[in-house]
């Protein structure tokens, strides 16, 4: 589920990448309110994508040594 959302988010990022560059330029030009855009995007991406990658490695069977020990 997180994987799907993550892919959608990155697709949106690619789609709107020119806007992001433009907003950064506008911030430099004085439109200070656009500063919030990178901050919000960073939070959302990191939450969704972080959860996805965690499940991803779990599903592939990559586990820490300690976990294996406690399991046996």
């Amino acid at each position: 589920m997180y994987g799907v959302v993550s892919v959608v988010l990155f697709a949106l990022l690619a789609l709107y990448s020119n806007n992001l560059v433009e907003w950064a330029r506008l911030t430099r030009a004085g439109e200070k309110l656009y500063f919030i855009v990178p901050i919000i995007i960073a939070f959302v991406f990191s939450f969704v994508h972080g959860n996805f990658t965690s499940y991803f490695w779990d599903a592939l069977g990559f586990k820490a040594a300690n976990n294996n020990k406690s399991k046996k």
């Binding site: 990448s17 907003w23 950064a24 506008l26 430099r28 200070k32 656009y34 500063f35 855009v37 995007i41």
Partner: peptide, 15 residues
């Protein structure tokens, strides 16, 4: 970000 020097595209690809 207030200075407009954060490249969000790069930040997210790296992330």
């Amino acid at each position: 970000s207030l200075d407009g020097v954060v490249d969000t595209r790069l930040a997210m690809i790296i992330l």
